[in-house]
Design a protein around this nucleic acid. Structure first.
Length: 212
DNA sequence: AAGTCACG
DNA sequence: ACCA
């Protein structure tokens, strides 16, 4: 388990099935950011609408077999980027390797994501508590990778009204939630601008999922 | 409401 | 509460 994350700084049990892994190598973070740059050249960041008409504060794009979109038909996964009309950019092997490694370290072997969502949080942007329930299967875990500015992750329970625990997430942290925690509510408090060692002016979050 | 705003 |  531990040898899969040799750079791990800390390991924090969140609840049944959810794990926070801390700190992969800086060189790997730079490679991940470079991959993000290449993806966003093909599938630009955009702001989706939430049900009800509001605008999501986080800018989003995706890579892999499926991408998450929000449109007049609701929240769903599609194989074609509605913005470009082209398939989503391929999941870089670096993403596949990191996601598989993190999932295995958290106790979920054989994780092969079909979707890599990329969320960009400018200072002030956050995401309210919600469940990830648009995937057709909930068997596989969600793997979440934090890059750039730090943020407070809100980790809730199975019900919206359950208390949320605030977990600081920093550049290089990975959160994995599966099993009973797969459908737990979670969100991100508005990101605050700060001088971080990364020099990045925003937070990037990569989330990896199996869709069907 | 995966958002925003008003009001106590 | 709002009423997409």
């Amino acid at each position: 388990m531990d040898d899969l994350f040799p750079e791990t700084r800390e390991r924090l049990s969140l609840s049944s099935g959810a794990v926070l892994l801390g700190g992969f190598a800086q060189a790997e973070a730079q490679a991940l950011l470079h991959a993000v740059e290449l993806i966003t050249q093909q599938a630009p960041f955009r702001h989706y609408r939430v049900v009800g008409g509001g605008r999501m504060a986080a800018a989003m794009t995706a890579c892999g077999e499926y991408g998450w979109v929000s449109d007049e038909q609701g929240y769903r996964y599609v194989r074609t980027d509605p913005l470009t009309g082209r398939p989503w950019p391929a999941l870089p092997s670096l993403f596949l390797a990191l996601a598989g490694r993190a999932a295995q370290a958290a106790g979920y072997a054989g994780f092969v994501p079909q979707c890599g969502l990329i969320n960009r949080y400018a200072p002030g942007a956050g995401m309210g508590p919600h469940q990830d329930r648009d995937e057709h299967t909930m068997e596989a875990p969600v793997v979440s990778v934090s890059l750039g500015l730090s943020a407070l992750f809100q980790w809730g329970g199975a019900r919206r009204q359950d208390a949320c625990r605030k977990v600081p997430l920093h550049h290089g942290d990975v959160v994995v939630w599966g099993g009973p925690s797969r459908s737990h509510f979670h969100g991100v408090l508005p990101v605050r601008s700060a001088q971080s060692g990364t020099g990045l002016g925003c937070r990037y979050n990569l989330t990896f999922r199996v869709v069907d």
